[in-house]
């Protein structure tokens, strides 16, 4: 009982703290203050992102990304009134970055859009997720075999690419993308600072991105060859000026 009332009291106190105070504390690097700001504004942010992407998981992803960005940039915030406007812009930017690659239905669409949402999946285990997705594609009634093949290949591709991460990087990567925990929760899991988590996530992503680029460039070159396009040409170097060497 006593504990309950204490918790209640604590939550009332937290509610009374204005955004300004929280922002001030978050600026000092206080993850709790940031967590509180996030939970206050997360729903709204999610709404914006959802509207932009029409995809639940992609929206969550965008919000996550925006929140991490927000935490990293909070020290540049000037006043509290600007928080919402500014946060909205970050969500929008994240959304645009994703969407400008061809919209939610381009190749980079997250898995959530092509599996029935009621399937039981262990989201904390990416191999399980990929396995489930794979089988759901195989047994899925469809009249478009090409699309089915592309989806299957995409999933296999992701599985291959994930192998190039270290175990720790992969764990964090999985948490971030699959469980959609707040960055604070991930930090607690691994007892790391939020900024470290951000570094690991972005390193994992970069590694993944680099692998993906290699694979796609390989396909690109093969495709050119198949089309009979020239494979090499070098123009006259002696005509070119280098400019002032720096």
């Amino acid at each position: 009982m006593l504990d309950d009332s204490r918790t209640k009291e604590k939550s009332i106190i937290v509610e009374m703290i204005h955004d300004e105070v929280l922002i001030e504390r978050a600026k000092q690097g206080d993850p709790e203050a940031f967590g509180e700001l996030v939970s206050r504004h997360r729903a709204k942010a999610y709404g914006w992102a959802r509207k932009m992407t029409q995809d639940t998981y992609m929206a969550e992803d965008i919000v996550q990304e925006a929140l991490l960005q927000a935490f990293l940039k909070i020290s540049t915030l000037i006043d509290a009134e600007k928080f919402m406007a500014w946060f909205h812009r970050i969500v929008q930017n994240q959304g645009h970055m994703k969407l400008r690659r061809g919209g939610p239905y381009a190749k980079e669409q997250l898995f959530s859009a092509f599996i029935p949402s009621n399937q039981e999946i262990d989201w904390s285990n990416i191999d399980h997720v990929l396995f489930k997705l794979n089988s759901s594609i195989e047994y899925r009634p469809t009249n478009n075999p090409v699309e089915q093949l592309i989806r299957k290949e995409t999933l296999q591709g992701v599985a291959i690419l994930l192998r190039c991460l270290t175990e720790r990087e992969r764990k964090i990567f999985e948490c971030f993308f699959i469980e959609q925990l707040t960055s604070k929760e991930i930090a607690e899991l691994f007892e790391m600072k939020v900024s470290n988590i951000y570094n690991v996530i972005s390193r994992s992503r970069n590694k993944l991105q680099r692998e993906r680029i290699k694979v796609e460039l390989g396909d690109y070159v093969k495709d050119r060859k198949r089309k009979g396009l020239p494979s090499k040409r070098i123009l006259d170097r002696s005509k070119l000026i280098k400019g002032v060497s720096l």
């Binding site: 494979s231 070098i234 123009l235 170097r237 280098k242 400019g243």
Partner: peptide
Amino acid sequence: FGYDDEKKTLWAIDPQG
């Protein structure tokens, strides 16, 4: 000013060389 699909390499020039 050049490319090679086999080597997946470009030939480039800027103030650095």
